[in-house]
Write a protein that binds this DNA or RNA. Structure first.
Lengths: 203, 203
DNA sequence: TGTCAATAGCGAATGTCATTCGTTCAAAAA
DNA sequence: TTTTTGAACGAATGACATTCGCTATTGACA
C-alpha cells in the first residue's frame, strides 16, 4: 500500500554499485558514492537495501549466475572429454574466480566483512555447487556420484581460494600454478571408468 | 638513540590484539580496545605498528609458523605413508585452516581488507609453501618435483578456500566435504612411483 | 473526486572507527 | 648536566555506515 518502491530506483542503485565496485572495489566504495551515481539520496538507499552487505550480495548474485550459465553453455559446446574438463576448470578458476573486473573481489570483501546482523543465505553457493556437479557428471559419466561430489567440492574450494588471493592483486601471488595444479589432479579421472579412489566420504 | 621502544609494550599490544581477535574477530576489534587491554594510549599503538593491518599480520604470522612447525613434527612422527598424507592434509585443512580459535578468520579479514597503502609481504606464504612442499617430498619420494609442486599448490589453494569459508561460521557450509575431497584427489599419488599425470606446468 | 495513511525521498544528524596532531616528559648521548 | 630524540598521551580529524525527523507522493477507500 501507499507509495510503492520504484523498480527504476532499485535498478539504478544496483547499476551504480556494480560499476563502482568494479572500479574501486567493494570496501572502497561508499554508500554516498553509490547514491550520487544512482541519482538519489544517500539515506534513500536504505529504503531499498538493508545494508551495504545486502547491496554487495545483490550485485554479485546475478553476475555469478550469469557467468556460471555462460560456462555451462561453453562446456556444453565442446565434445572431447579432455577439452571439456579443461574448459570447465579453466573457465571456473581463471574466467570467474580470478575475473579481472573485480566482481570476485566483491564477493571476498563481502564475505570477509559479514557482521552477525547480516543475513547470509547460502543459496547461491548451493546453486553453484549443483551446476558444477552436473557439468562434472556430464564430463565423467563413468565416475560414481561420490566421485562427482569429490571433484565438485575440490573445485569449489579452489574457487574460494583463488578468489581470496585475487583480492591481493599481487604479481608474486599468481593463480596459474594453483589452477594448473587442480587440472592435473583431476585429469586422472578422465582416463578410467572406475578410478582407484573410492574413499570418497563426500556426499 | 633517545628513548627506545619498549619490547614489553610491543608484546602487550600483540597479546591484547591476539586475545581480542580470538574473542571478537579482527574486524570487530578496535584499536582503542587493543590499547585499553594493553594498558597504553590508543595513539601509542601507532608508535609500534604502522596500521591495524600491520597488527593483524604480526599476530597471525608467528601463530601460523608455530602451527606449521607443529604439523611438521606430527607428520614426521608417523611412519606409514598413507597415514602421513592423511595427517598432513587433515592437519593443514582441519587443524589449521578451520582452526576454531579464529586465527584463520584474522588472516581472511586482514587479507580481504588490505588497502593499497598496506604493504603485504608474501614471505609467510612462501615460507609455508616451502614447508609443505618439503613434507610432500618426504611422503612421496617417488613423485617428481613437478608433481610435488602440483600437490603443494592444490593444498595451499584449498587452505585459502577453507579459511574463507571458515569466516562465515555457518553450519550449512561445512568444510568436511572439501577436506575429504582433497584427500581423495591426492591419494592416487601414494600408489604409484610414476603417476600418470606428468602434465604439471607448475614450478 | 477528495481524504487518509503509509511510506518513498531527503538533508541533517549520530556514532563508530582508524589515523594524525601537538604537547609533554623520560632517557640516551654529549 | 644539558641537549636532543622520540615514546607516551589526550584531543582532534576525517571517513563512513546507518538512523532520524520531516516533507511529499501515491494508492486505497469513502
Amino acid at each position: 500500500m501507499a507509495r510503492p518502491k520504484s523498480e527504476q530506483v532499485r535498478q539504478a542503485i544496483l547499476d551504480a554499485a556494480h560499476q563502482l565496485f568494479m572500479e574501486k572495489g567493494y570496501t572502497a566504495t561508499t554508500i554516498g558514492a553509490i547514491a550520487r551515481q544512482a541519482g538519489t539520496a544517500q539515506s534513500n538507499v536504505y529504503v531499498y537495501f538493508q545494508s551495504k552487505f545486502d547491496i554487495g550480495f545483490a550485485v554479485f548474485d546475478p553476475w555469478m549466475r550469469q557467468k556460471v550459465t555462460e560456462l555451462e553453455e561453453k562446456v556444453g559446446s565442446v565434445s572431447d572429454p579432455q577439452d571439456r574438463l579443461h574448459t570447465l576448470v579453466e573457465g571456473l578458476l581463471h574466467g570467474i574466480a580470478s575475473d579481472p573486473s573485480g566482481q570476485t573481489m566483491t564477493l571476498v570483501q563481502v564475505l570477509a566483512t559479514v557482521k552477525p546482523s547480516d543475513e547470509y543465505d547460502p543459496e547461491l553457493l548451493m546453486w553453484t555447487l549443483e551446476r558444477i556437479r552436473e557439468m562434472i557428471g556430464d564430463i565423467l559419466p563413468g565416475a560414481s556420484p561420490a566421485e562427482h561430489d569429490v571433484l565438485t567440492q575440490a573445485l569449489m574450494l579452489s574457487f574460494d581460494g583463488i578468489a581470496l588471493r585475487q583480492n591481493l592483486r599481487r604479481e608474486e601471488v599468481s593463480d596459474d600454478h594453483g589452477i594448473s595444479a587442480m587440472l592435473t589432479l583431476m585429469k586422472p579421472y578422465l582416463d578410467r571408468e572406475k578410478p582407484a579412489a573410492k574413499v570418497a566420504e563426500a556426499g
